[in-house]
């Protein structure tokens, strides 16, 4: 159990960090939509539309590391399984 929690913590921390990095390392809040600006050539107005796109931010990264830290801490409450000593 101890080992399982530690591996899970590592997977969550690495998974969160890698996801955050490959999606643009957004140092602001998580976004689920991004603005797309298009120019209306007749009026010169920049129209704004929103496109659904998940862009994890520092809150996502914090949650991933926080969750990983919690699991890693919880693992210390479990003892290592006893191994049988060979008879002498």
């Amino acid at each position: 159990m101890k080992r399982t929690l530690q591996i899970l913590a590592l997977v969550i921390a690495l998974g969160g960090g890698v996801t955050w990095a490959v999606t643009g390392a957004n140092r602001a809040w998580t976004k689920t939509e991004v603005q797309i600006k298009t120019l209306d050539e007749v009026t010169g107005i920049e129209g704004i539309t929103y496109h659904k796109k998940f862009q994890p931010g520092v809150d996502f990264l914090g949650a991933a590391f926080g969750g990983a830290a919690l699991l890693a801490s919880a693992s210390f409450f479990f003892r290592k399984p006893k191994t049988n000593q060979p008879n002498q």
Partner: peptide, 8 residues
């Protein structure tokens, strides 16, 4: 009708 008008 084109939905370009906006307030930012």
């Amino acid at each position: 009708p084109k939905g370009v008008n906006n307030a930012v």
